[in-house]
Design a protein around this nucleic acid. Structure first.
Length: 223
DNA sequence: ATGACGATTTACT
DNA sequence: GTAAATCGTCATA
């Protein structure tokens, strides 16, 4: 894989060494690549992100400087993967950023699948209820949410603490084509953080307007 | 040892 | 729209 083609360039430590508000926007349009143990390659374009600001952000896992085995990877170097388990059944994938040792991260909330759709569909279907007639999952049902994309991309706690600048299992590539992402990006309060007081209202979520792979009703939700 | 709680998704009324 | 599913984690005791 030469670096001749821009879309093949892996994002560097330097790229991740910035604040989460900046990175959350810069990650829209980039490509998340996952290579399974058997060599199968899965990939998608990031279309929705959320910034978590660190110790002062009540919605963040590192609020108040909290540091536990669960969120330890947030204290790792920029470019570290932070994968956590939540609601007793879902994983969420984050990219650590900010300064060295600062517990700051960006949550990847949705992807537009571009490679390995068949396997993604299989991964997702395996977790759906069987009570109902198993209708074919649409492309927009594969990665349109933080938990969903982890199912589709086979991201689980084994990838927590992985170095995205060096791993052969998962990484991000420059992957932005001309005219994408479209400006201006959609921007809204973060999802699922209603418990965080004034922080719940801060517009720290970004997404590609009108893109069907964005989470929420008819993909988009709020401005 | 115990209990409350999720950076969610799905199914159902 | 509302509620169930489901369990690791962390604060409290």
């Amino acid at each position: 894989m030469s670096a001749a083609h821009p879309s093949m360039e892996r994002l560097t430590r330097r790229f991740y060494s910035t604040g989460s508000v900046s990175l959350a926007q810069a990650l829209i349009g980039r490509t998340l690549v996952r290579v399974l143990d058997d060599g199968t390659r899965l990939a998608g374009t990031i279309v929705e992100t959320e910034a978590y600001l660190g110790v002062e952000d009540r919605a963040a896992h590192a609020f108040g400087g909290r540091r536990t085995p669960r969120n330890e990877s947030m204290y790792g170097p920029p470019g570290t993967a932070y994968v956590y388990f939540t609601y007793g059944m879902h994983f969420c994938f984050n990219v650590v950023c900010g300064g060295e040792g600062e517990p700051v991260a960006v949550l990847i909330r949705a992807l537009e699948p571009i490679e390995g759709l068949g396997l993604m569909r299989a991964h997702r279907a395996a977790r759906l209820g069987r009570a109902r007639r198993p209708r074919e999952l649409r492309d927009s049902d594969l990665c349109s949410g933080p938990g969903k994309l982890c199912q589709a991309m086979a991201v689980d706690r084994k990838l927590d603490r992985v170095d995205l600048t060096d791993s052969s299992l998962i990484w991000l590539e420059r992957g932005v084509s001309k005219g994408f992402p479209p400006e201006p990006l959609g921007n809204s309060p973060r999802i699922g953080v209603g418990y965080s007081g004034v922080w719940a209202a801060r517009p720290l979520r970004w997404f590609v307007r009108g893109n069907p792979h964005v989470s929420g009703p008819k993909g988009g939700r709020v401005a």
